[in-house]
Write a protein that binds this DNA or RNA. Structure first.
Lengths: 192, 192
DNA sequence: CGGATAAGTAAACGGTTGTTTACGTCACAT
DNA sequence: ATGTGACGTAAACAACCGTTTACTTATCCG
């Protein structure tokens, strides 16, 4: 009943392990995920995790750096303030986009991984400020507010599953998120 | 901190276990927290967890329902839209307030606890809508946006620790959060 | 071919987990 | 004062964790 005719493809199984691990780590967290869970979902033997990624923590770091690369690449193109809501919602609704963001808040307890996480978020906030040209002295803080909203949104929709947010259509999220973003990042929010 | 001459006080040690568990579960998550961690932080023996709370999961549920009660009680008084930002920030900066909110997103994998979590958040959103008198058809969704922002804020400040958000003063958060809330919940967000 | 090597598996390893058991020991009513 | 029951502890328990080992088998180059 096991893999009767399994093709021998190192790169393929490595990718399968990465996919399964990303999914499990993102949805269930690092500690709650066992290496046997991952191996089963990938359909391979447990020991291959140690072989290809050194350890469970090595596999997690591979997931994290992969997510970081995709994250950076997906937000690298110039962001305009009025297109930002729709762009963000598209990433938040996309399955791999959700996984990416959720992985950024999962922790294995490793200090280096935590630093990577902080750098990615800080970097995103800085690029957001640069793209919007906001000059307020708390611009960076406000950009991180946007990121916090996105993070909380994915959490409440995916992990917690509170309605009606969880079942909301992609289009239903664009306008409210737009209100949040303009509320936070419009050039002169307040008089004086 | 001194457990040398431990008084025999069932209610006291029960409370100590609850405090330690709340702290550990909120900051490290359910799976990453061991019963021995909790017992050590409480300064008592491990077996008392089973005695007083049946199991680790029973202890978690006790933490959760306790947090739910405090949560409901703290937001029960009438909320006004203009005082909401400062009130929320006060709760988000308060240590027990953070713990309360973080516990709401930690999961033990138990379905009943997950339902409790969803109900609390839904309930908060509904009360927020009632308090603001918002009549938009996506009012509930927008109220949950506010909650998502609060959740993400606590996460990024406490768990992830990204700067400058993590080190931001309580007062620095009021105005941006106010912009988010008015952006989401003001009666007529858009011209038409 | 055929054998060398990479790919995959099953089983076992020590350590840790949550939980239970057996046993001290303090407090309080009588 | 005293024994009885609640409170607390140490140790043992089976099950599970991540990891390693020993082994089988497919693949490919000569």
């Amino acid at each position: 009943m096991t893999q009767q005719a399994r093709r021998r493809d190192a790169a393929g199984t490595r990718r399968a392990l990465l996919d399964a691990a990303r999914h499990r780590f993102a949805t269930n967290g690092y500690a709650a995920t066992t290496v046997r869970d991952i191996a089963d979902e990938a359909g391979v033997n447990v020991s291959l995790i140690s072989r290809y990624f050194m350890s469970k923590e090595g596999l997690f770091e591979a997931c994290l750096t992969g997510a970081v690369d995709e994250f950076d690449r997906s937000v690298t193109p110039g962001i305009t303030l009025d297109e930002l809501p729709r762009t963000m919602v598209r990433h938040l609704a996309d399955d791999s986009g959700k996984t990416r963001l959720l992985l950024l808040l999962r922790s294995s307890g490793d200090a280096a991984a935590d630093q990577v996480r902080r750098n990615v978020m800080r970097n995103f906030a800085e690029r957001l400020v640069a793209a919007t040209g906001l000059e307020a002295d708390d611009a960076l803080l406000r950009a991180e507010f946007v990121l916090a909203t996105a993070l909380g949104l994915v959490l409440m929709r995916t992990v917690i599953g509170v309605q009606p947010l969880a079942a909301a259509d992609q289009e239903d999220l664009v306008t409210p998120l737009g209100d949040v973003i303009t509320g936070l990042l419009r050039p002169t929010p307040r008089a004086s």
